[in-house]
Amino acid sequence: MHKLATIVSLWMVIASGHSLAAGSALVPAKQNWSFNGLFGTFDRGALQRGYQVYNEVCAGCHGLRLVAYRNLTEIGLTEQQVKKIAASKTVKDGPNDEGEMYERSGRPSDRFVMPFANKNAARAANNGAYPPDLSLMVKARVGGADYLYGLLTGYQETKKGVEIPEGMYYNKYYPGNLIAMPSPLVEEGIEYPDKTKATVKQMAQDVTVFLSWTAEPEIEQRKRLGIKVLLFLIILTGLLYAIKKRVWSQLHN
């Protein structure tokens, strides 16, 4: 079996050696997220601050079409708060008895209202660039939460020799470095009700936590269940090993 081990480690060396060499964008640094690891959970405070950042900064251009307002109870908001949030949104519904579409206030069972009517409207409003939906963003990018945090904090003045076209911005973590989204976060751009200082880093971190939750709302449940399943299986496997040893020992008589 040592041969197999050698092969696997050789494989790792080649594979990792290459990934370091690839790409023009920097690889974002790993952050210490509370939802990493065997027992990972979301920090409710960060989730709620992150929702606030999304709502006040991102929601103007980016949708969250897979998330419903009712889901916000999972980030620690009360039913009343969720109802209030939903009611403050205008939802297009219909057709009514006259066959007309009409507008009504949102309900918790509604999905997040999209900022634009459709993709074309979104492009038209953003110089031809389509602001992607953020529901699954953390799962849909290599690097996940680290990448998103890196992107939000990775805006820079242009590097020497790099020409920035009109309407583009330089970001050291974005593939190709030229991104159509201007740096969305500014120092103290919003005010947190819990008095946390709204630095760019703080906001980037909070909104990344929030979007990690929108991408993988099952993560806490998954990890809690995982521990139980693993413990159970390890014990069961141990018992099976004992039986196996016992049964096979008869053979040597």
């Binding site: 299986l233 069961l236 496997t237 099976l240 090993y241 039986i243 196996k244 049964v247 096979w248």
Partner: peptide, 9 residues
């Protein structure tokens, strides 16, 4: 029993 143990692993 050997297969079951393997399944557990």
């Amino acid at each position: 029993v050997k297969d079951l143990f393997g399944l557990g692993v």
